[in-house]
């Protein structure tokens, strides 16, 4: 409940990243990242593969441990301490490229697990909560199905509902549509656009530039572990400054 005390404060950023460094062996995956994300802001991060964009958002909820610099999430400074990590993860939901649903649980049970285990919510209430969010991703009819019986787009929407059930203030998306068949991309992006309106802070690694244009407040372009350009969506696409971003956009918008 540290977090509640903090949100009463003034416009402190939802996420404040300063001088973030991450190594994989001798490879420098993140090379001094500075980024402040305001509450309710929608950020899209793009860049060529290996540029460090996934690593960056995985550092935010400590799925990767950073080697230098600092990350503040809702005013809590991220450290290696297990309790702190746990506190931050309660506030930060994440959606993965490969959905990562629990295959042995139904869609409904997937959504119920974390609220029940983390908050000790009784079964009936957890079920109501889960159904609420499954309805929100338009999957109430599929609540009793196991993930193996759902399409990729449906699985990803369950994964979004699962993250929402913890009622996080911040949502991280790690290439949520990259593993989907093209015809299913739309349904997932549609749900994400709906979320964007709700006021949750969103950080989304994606190559869906149409989505970025419609939803993002700011876009971030990364290359070689650095932020090359960070601008409001309109400027980002209309007037890219760096040559690297111009080349990247030319490639991706072809």
């Amino acid at each position: 409940m540290i977090v509640q005390a903090d949100t009463a404060g003034t416009g402190a950023p939802a996420i404040a990243i300063a001088g973030l460094v991450k190594h994989y062996g001798s490879h420098r995956a993140l090379n001094g990242i500075d980024l402040d994300i305001r509450r309710g802001e929608k950020i899209v991060i793009c860049g060529p593969s290996g540029s460090g964009k996934s690593t960056l958002i995985r550092c935010i909820n400590a799925l990767e441990h950073h080697d230098g610099g600092s990350i503040m999430v809702n005013g809590i400074r991220l450290s290696a301490d297990e309790g702190t990590v746990q506190d931050i993860r309660q506030e930060v939901g994440m959606v993965f490229q490969h959905f990562n649903l629990f295959p042995h649980l139904t869609a409904l049970e997937n959504c119920m697990l974390a609220p029940r285990l983390n908050r000790g919510i009784p079964k009936a209430r957890a079920e109501k909560l889960a159904m609420h969010y499954l309805e929100r991703v338009h999957l109430a009819d599929h609540a009793r199905k196991y993930p193996a019986r759902l399409s990729g787009g449906q699985q990803q929407r369950v994964a979004i509902a699962r993250a929402l059930c913890m009622e996080p203030r911040i949502l991280l998306f790690d290439e949520p549509t990259s593993a989907l068949d093209p015809e299913m991309v739309g349904e997932v992006l549609g749900v994400m656009e709906g979320l964007a309106i709700s006021g949750v802070t969103m950080v989304c690694v994606t190559h869906e530039m149409g989505f970025a244009r419609r939803v993002a407040d700011r876009c971030v372009f990364m290359d070689h572990g650095e932020i090359v350009e960070c601008a409001e969506a309109e400027a980002f696409f209309q007037a890219p400054v760096s040559l690297r971003l111009r080349n990247f956009l030319a490639q991706i918008l072809r």
Partner: peptide, 9 residues
């Protein structure tokens, strides 16, 4: 990882 990201101990 997905379970950990949900804050499950």
């Amino acid at each position: 990882e997905a379970s950990e990201a949900l804050g499950i101990s």
